[in-house]
């Protein structure tokens, strides 16, 4: 099986955009071995890291923070340290400041040569808190 470890290192956060929304920022460690997912009918894995959380405004928020395409034959043994997120972590409103339970999960979408397109969630997840104050520094 694949074990996934996700650790959040640093989480400053500030509001911006035309309407002020909370913007989160974080870096993460990720270590996983997905090589046993590949067989003759797996052309590509689409790997994505999702932040999932609940706010007063929305009962479910899902934001993809990072993704990666792994083609068959490429290295599927991943060990990232202190990775930056790839996409902006905008909340729909101002629900991130002081949020104490944001869950990070790793999932993948298998693209076959021909056949079904399943989306699978990895075992293991990581929860973290946002600071209670907006940061003034640039990230």
């Amino acid at each position: 099986m694949n074990t996934v470890k996700v650790v959040v290192k640093n989480v400053p956060d500030y509001g911006a955009s035309r309407e002020k929304n909370d913007l989160g920022y974080l870096t993460f460690d990720l270590k996983t071995d997905l090589s046993n997912l590949f067989n003759w009918n797996v052309k590509q894995l689409f790997l994505y890291l999702t932040a999932e959380y609940i706010t007063p405004a929305n009962e479910l928020n899902q934001v993809v923070l990072w993704d990666k395409i792994i083609l068959r034959g490429e290295n599927a043994l991943l060990d990232f340290k202190n990775m930056n997120i790839k996409y902006y972590f905008w909340d729909d409103g101002n629900g991130l400041k002081g949020h104490n339970n944001v869950t990070l999960t790793l999932s993948w979408n298998i693209i076959p040569n021909a056949g079904l397109l399943p989306n699978i969630q990895a075992i293991g997840q990581h929860s973290f808190k946002f600071p209670t104050e907006y940061t003034q520094t640039r990230v």
């Binding site: 405004a57 928020n61 993809v64 979408n109």
Partner: peptide, 20 residues
């Protein structure tokens, strides 16, 4: 592909997509 999604208590969903 769906990149981000917000679902309200009354079940309305809004989401943003992106091509790989």
């Amino acid at each position: 592909r769906v990149l981000k999604l917000h679902e309200k208590n009354n079940g309305t969903v809004k989401f943003l997509t992106k091509g790989d």
